[in-house]
């Protein structure tokens, strides 16, 4: 890894204090987010806020299983986000397929298609685990180790080739919009 300049180090310090999260809630894990966001666990005290659009978000939180249809949308979303961007894989489904490991339409590991900075194991993980993961990610950002977005650029060919292998085509065809 390249040495960071002083400015980059300062920027990373600041970034880690204000991360906005886009949550892609297709899996069951989305159920744990309301308590995490609201008064009970209150993630805003760490500077983490939910955000509705990819362009303004820093974190992409994938809450659980992705099938080929949603993976296409996730790749779109991920590529729309501005650098620096981080991905958190939430639940065993993103790690190794979970209970859907032999399904005909769900993928088995997320980091094969987009780079993942932190995984949270569990089916489903508790809000404490989510906050723990966020703290870990903040630590990684501060140290400059959360470099998934750089890896995506450097190994773009490899990621694209994997995406094509599983999806056939990444382009989204949508009968309601064409």
């Amino acid at each position: 890894m390249k040495e960071r300049t002083v400015w980059e180090q300062i920027a990373d310090q600041l970034r880690s204090r204000s991360i906005w999260m886009l949550h892609y809630c297709t899996g069951c894990g989305a159920m744990e987010l309301p308590p995490t966001m609201t008064a009970r666990f209150d993630m805003e005290r760490f500077g983490i806020m939910p955000m509705a659009t990819p362009r303004q978000a820093d974190i992409l939180l994938i809450t659980g299983y992705l099938n080929t249809k949603t993976l296409r949308r996730v790749i779109y979303t991920y590529e729309q986000m501005a650098d620096p961007k981080y991905v958190i894989g939430f639940g065993s489904c993103t790690i190794n397929g979970g209970i859907y490991y032999d399904s005909y339409s769900t993928i088995n590991r997320l980091d094969y298609y987009i780079p993942v900075d932190v995984y949270i194991a569990g089916c489903m993980p508790r809000p404490e685990a989510i906050l723990e993961a966020f703290q870990y990610l903040m630590e990684k950002i501060r140290k400059g180790e959360a470099d998934g977005w750089k890896r995506y650029k450097e190994n773009y060919e490899w990621y694209k080739q994997n995406q094509i292998r599983s999806l056939g085509e990444v382009y989204v065809h949508d009968e309601f919009h064409e």
């Binding site: 790690i95 190794n96 397929g97 490991y101 032999d102 399904s103 005909y104 769900t106 993928i107 088995n108 590991r109 094969y112 994997n162 292998r165 599983s166």
Partner: peptide, 10 residues
Amino acid sequence: EYSKSKFPDR
């Protein structure tokens, strides 16, 4: 079988 051929495992 289909999952094995399309979606690589960890």
